[in-house]
Amino acid sequence: MTGYAIEGRGLVKRFGDRVVVDHVDIGAKPGEIVTLIGPNGAGKTLLLKMLLGLVPPDRGTVVRSPGLRVGYMPQKLAIDPNLPISVARFVGLAGKGNVVASLETAGVADMARAPMAGLSGGELQRVLLARALMRDPQLLVLDEPAQGVDVTGQDALYALVGKLRDKTNCAVLLVSHDLHLVMARSDRVVCLNTHVCCTGQPETVGRDPAFAALFGARAGESLALYRHHHDHVHDTHGHVHHGHSHDGHHHG
């Protein structure tokens, strides 16, 4: 009905008295790449986990299109170094799907027999992507997919995600606190800093003062972060953000 593969409405998460995710509306449509950006501690990962059903929200709802197949690429892998397991075996743990084809698509077919423990950062990311692809996902959720990967590797990874989207028309929801390469390939950018600061197409969001503040906050030091807080005083009386202005942008 809404046309979204997945949609979260009015999501709130508190840890004690601290509101970590504050009335966030977010969604991704089939074939759309939505990028969630924001500084550390902005609640990006937590928001993803609520959408994935891994963490229950304190308030708000998550609606998935019926029977939605999800591929998830976590930020970190919690695998214990005492657990010996090969790449192919790890990817095969997804249960369904073709291990060889997934590894090929992710560009790590030659690593099938390698032990997980010996992978470099970039190889691990691609293996995680291969596992996410196993169930032929209609929604790909990628949490900081380019972490610990050099710039060329990042560009290649995002290019691959873009290609996958073109081929399978899957929705892509990805998190980053790094913008340069992400921006060019996203259909929509959502700036998150506990609440949604602004959302829209990359070009329009790029001109938004709230985005500039976030961007500066990342580049700068603690002073910039402090200033950033002051830039957002206006948000204390306007938490709820309605509508997903798909064209143009919406500034909370």
Partner: peptide, 17 residues
Amino acid sequence: RPLLAASVDEDLARVEG
């Protein structure tokens, strides 16, 4: 198999159903 999947990474295993 499910125990191994959960031991490797619980979040991934849960997302996969």
